[in-house]
């Protein structure tokens, strides 16, 4: 459903994607690990349309989307979260989801409202629905980030460290929310996470990225055991 074909992206002398190719099947859950600066978040930018690659092609559902902007790609079914949550401040939690439901999922009027209300319930935000987004704590900001992405009714969900900074029980809850959404909608997930423990229960495939290249791709335990992967983590055990 998603194909990256020899994507290259450089910022000055730093290469964040080095002729990188990747294919993700419908419903697949792919984890992404890698050291800081490996190009993980840039990869999401290239998939979601926030970042234009210098070379290569992005295809989604069989059609090239490289020239489409982030808004058009979202409407095609690519939903994303940001590592540092970017809620719409000055708007309530419900309104944040309504924007995504109306614009991203194309659910106008009542349909949009009921979609937003359903996502509120699924993500445990119903009680905070009328609270301005800027008055949320980190946990709820992370939840809102996930809820807003889910409200666009994505076929492919890009999760950028949604578990970062959360306590263990909070991570468990978050993992459950994602598992429920996947079970119902069959959406594919690409999930960047430093908290590898959050990934291993969810993903069936793990990528390890370093310097804009994929240096490991396969079953999570195999990738984490591979010498090349262990080397980039410089002795720190990724497990």
């Amino acid at each position: 459903m998603l194909e990256l074909d020899r994507i290259t992206k450089r910022f000055g002398r730093v290469t964040v994607a080095d002729s990188l190719s990747l294919a993700v099947r419908p419903g697949e859950a792919v984890g992404v690990v890698g050291p800081n600066g490996a190009g993980k978040t840039s990869l999401f930018g290239i998939i979601s349309g926030d970042l234009a690659p210098d070379a290569g092609e992005v295809r989604f559902d069989g059609r090239p989307v490289t020239r489409l902007d982030a808004s058009a790609r979202c409407r095609l079914g690519i939903g994303r979260t940001y590592q540092v949550p970017r809620p719409f401040e000055g708007m309530t939690v419900l309104e944040n989801l309504l924007v995504a439901a109306e614009q991203g999922a194309g659910a106008r009027g009542r349909a949009g409202l009921s979609l937003a209300i359903r996502v509120l319930a699924e993500t445990g935000l119903t009680e905070l629905a009328d609270r301005p987004a800027e008055r949320l704590g980190l946990l709820h900001r992370k939840r809102l980030e996930l809820a807003r992405a889910l409200s666009t009714r994505p076929k492919l969900l890009l999760l950028d460290e949604v578990a970062g900074g959360l306590t263990d029980p909070e991570v468990t809850e978050l993992v459950e929310i994602i598992a429920t959404a996947r079970a119902r909608d069959g959406l594919a997930v690409i999930w960047i996470e430093h908290v590898v423990r959050a990934l291993t229960g969810t993903v069936d495939r793990l990528l390890c990225l370093a310097a804009g290249r994929i240096i490991g791709d396969g079953r999570p335990e195999e990738v984490l055991a591979a010498p090349a992967v262990r080397e980039v983590f410089l002795g720190t055990d990724p497990r």
């Binding site: 349309g49 808004s71 979202c74 924007v99 614009q103």
Partner: peptide
């Protein structure tokens, strides 16, 4: 209405608005 919702999202964070499907 819907326009106000879109406009407020664009005002708050145009990048996040675009990745939520808003035609900024």
């Amino acid at each position: 209405g819907g326009f106000g919702l879109r406009a407020r999202a664009v005002q708050s964070d145009p990048v996040a608005a675009a990745s939520s499907g808003v035609r900024v």
